[in-house]
Simulated scan of single mutants.
Amino acid sequence: MNLRALVSVTGKPGLFKLVGQNKGGFILETLDQAKIKTVVSLSSTKMATLEDITIYGEEEEIRLLNIFETIKEKGIALPDTKSDGETLRNFFREVAPGHDESRVYSSDIKKVITWYNIIKEFPLFEEEAPAPLM
């Protein structure tokens, strides 16, 4: 899974593709049909690549990419984001066993489901991630 160029931006819904950089910040493109480009400031905006996002675990953090891989490999049906908290929690127990239930909220689970639905059809989801530089 090569999702290195996909980012989440604090305060903005959805996911973005990092397409460039200029003096003022990063140039991002929405992943929806509109393909709207926007610039986010380096100093005032928090962003995280999907590869860097982790979920609180009881023993160690769980990488978001590992959760996506589990959903993909097992063909697990995603619950609706409007499902009740227990349905969402049961789903997450299956795809992220060992997550810290006291620190992972329903809103976090909904975000994971939403993001998976956004990226599941993209070719990047099928590509292998490049090897890390040493």
Score class of each variant (00 low, 15 high):
residue 1 M to P: 05
residue 1 M to Q: 03
residue 1 M to D: 00
residue 2 N to F: 08
residue 3 L to F: 06
residue 4 R to I: 14
residue 8 S to A: 12
residue 9 V to S: 13
residue 10 T to V: 09
residue 11 G to N: 08
residue 12 K to W: 07
residue 12 K to G: 01
residue 12 K to A: 03
residue 13 P to F: 01
residue 13 P to S: 11
residue 14 G to K: 09
residue 14 G to A: 11
residue 14 G to L: 05
residue 15 L to F: 10
residue 18 L to G: 00
residue 18 L to E: 11
residue 19 V to P: 09
residue 22 N to R: 02
residue 22 N to W: 01
residue 23 K to F: 13
residue 23 K to S: 12
residue 25 G to H: 14
residue 26 F to E: 07
residue 26 F to C: 01
residue 28 L to R: 09
residue 29 E to T: 12
residue 29 E to G: 03
residue 31 L to S: 06
residue 33 Q to K: 13
residue 34 A to D: 15
residue 35 K to T: 07
residue 35 K to W: 11
residue 35 K to I: 15
residue 36 I to Y: 10
residue 36 I to A: 13
residue 36 I to L: 14
residue 37 K to E: 14
residue 39 V to G: 05
residue 39 V to F: 08
residue 40 V to M: 14
residue 43 S to W: 11
residue 43 S to G: 12
residue 44 S to Y: 11
residue 44 S to P: 02
residue 46 K to T: 13
residue 46 K to I: 15
residue 47 M to D: 06
residue 48 A to Y: 05
residue 48 A to L: 09
residue 48 A to D: 06
residue 49 T to E: 08
residue 49 T to R: 10
residue 49 T to F: 07
residue 49 T to M: 04
residue 54 T to R: 13
residue 56 Y to P: 01
residue 58 E to V: 14
residue 59 E to C: 09
residue 61 E to N: 09
residue 62 I to E: 03
residue 65 L to F: 08
residue 68 F to V: 00
residue 69 E to C: 11
residue 69 E to I: 13
residue 70 T to C: 12
residue 70 T to D: 06
residue 70 T to R: 12
residue 71 I to T: 12
residue 73 E to S: 12
residue 73 E to K: 15
residue 73 E to P: 07
residue 74 K to H: 08
residue 76 I to N: 04
residue 76 I to G: 05
residue 77 A to N: 15
residue 77 A to L: 08
residue 77 A to I: 15
residue 79 P to D: 03
residue 80 D to H: 05
residue 83 S to Q: 10
residue 84 D to A: 06
residue 84 D to T: 00
residue 84 D to V: 06
residue 88 L to K: 01
residue 88 L to C: 09
residue 89 R to I: 07
residue 90 N to H: 07
residue 91 F to K: 05
residue 91 F to P: 02
residue 92 F to S: 01
residue 93 R to M: 04
residue 93 R to I: 03
residue 94 E to K: 14
residue 94 E to P: 00
residue 95 V to D: 09
residue 95 V to W: 03
residue 96 A to G: 12
residue 96 A to L: 10
residue 97 P to S: 14
residue 99 H to Q: 04
residue 99 H to I: 10
residue 99 H to M: 02
residue 100 D to H: 00
residue 101 E to H: 02
residue 102 S to G: 03
residue 103 R to T: 03
residue 103 R to Q: 05
residue 105 Y to W: 08
residue 105 Y to L: 09
residue 105 Y to E: 05
residue 106 S to A: 02
residue 107 S to P: 00
residue 107 S to D: 11
residue 108 D to W: 01
residue 109 I to G: 00
residue 113 I to W: 10
residue 115 W to M: 08
residue 116 Y to D: 04
residue 117 N to F: 08
residue 117 N to K: 12
residue 119 I to T: 05
residue 119 I to Q: 02
residue 119 I to C: 04
residue 120 K to E: 09
residue 122 F to V: 11
residue 122 F to Q: 05
residue 123 P to E: 12
residue 124 L to I: 14
residue 125 F to S: 13
residue 126 E to Q: 15
residue 126 E to Y: 11
residue 127 E to F: 08
residue 128 E to S: 13
residue 129 A to V: 06
residue 130 P to W: 04
residue 130 P to R: 09
residue 132 P to I: 15
residue 134 M to E: 07
